[in-house]
Design a protein around this nucleic acid. Sequence first.
DNA 1: TGTTTATTGAGATTTAGTCTCAATTTTAAT
DNA 2: ATTAAAATTGAGACTAAATCTCAATAAACA
Lengths: 142, 142
Amino acid sequence: MREEEKLKKFLKAKGLKFTKEREDIIREIENTEGHFDPDGLFIKMKNRGSKVSRASVYRTINLLLESGIIDVVENIDRHKHYEKVKDKTHHDHMICIKCGKVIEFYSPTLEMLQQELCEKEGFTPTKHSLEIYGYCKQCYKK
Amino acid sequence: MREEEKLKKFLKAKGLKFTKEREDIIREIENTEGHFDPDGLFIKMKNRGSKVSRASVYRTINLLLESGIIDVVENIDRHKHYEKVKDKTHHDHMICIKCGKVIEFYSPTLEMLQQELCEKEGFTPTKHSLEIYGYCKQCYKK
DNA sequence: TGTTTATTGAGATTTAGTCTCAATTTTAAT
DNA sequence: ATTAAAATTGAGACTAAATCTCAATAAACA
Ligand SMILES: [Mn+2]
Ligand SMILES: [Mn+2]
Ligand SMILES: [Zn+2]
Ligand SMILES: [Zn+2]
């Protein structure tokens, strides 16, 4: 299902409205590859002529987050970065502290191991975030 | 080695000075158990009569971070929380999204697995942060 | 179509964190 | 102990992300 459909469904279930602005924003996000941040999204939309407000961008991003359509990736500088959850399987990140490059990876073994560790603690996980910081191949050479 | 000694060493190596204020702050942190945030620390010190400034608290926390004496734990609300690295081995966190309880855990298998995954990507890790969100035993029952 | 209720934008507000700069303190060398 | 050089301090200004306010507007649905 497209993100737009998911959002409509989510809004309806909560008695909220699918507005022109929310449509505009979800479509922009659908056309965005990789990671993004709210203000960057807002600027991009503004530049291509959208009249949507910064407040609405922030508000809509919070709805998308709540509905599981997007997810927080990391905190850079002092603001959050997001990515679409999409049909992507869940994955984690390696982040180069030199050039900022992000490597996405997924390991079933790692996921299973986490599940086991949670069981041992009587903890019921709903989601997790693993970020490994270090140097990518290129940056390590130098 | 005590945190204060580590800080002195770190400062000396960088040609920086061990001031009364830094001493005051590192001692407050030495006497703090668990997680803490800069402003909370500042208020606590102020209340017990310290004349240290908010700016110095933030500045010193950045030095402690750089020297590896403390580490970022998580972002709550919109500000960072830290903890002492101390003689504790490295560990990760399970965080209850209901009551806020934090379970610390360490798994050598998990650490090793991460190392392997990094090698596969040609990535040289320096540190990582794994946070598992979900419900603790008590909160899950309800 | 009309009524209800949620949403919008503009700008104010909040807040974590950083920056500025003159005055002060530390440090190491005399 | 004096001194000079360099780092640090505190007060408050500043920055920037994110949220809030509220009157005007638009969506939803009968
Ligand atoms: Mn990603
Ligand atoms: Mn901890
Ligand atoms: Zn790199
Ligand atoms: Zn709990």
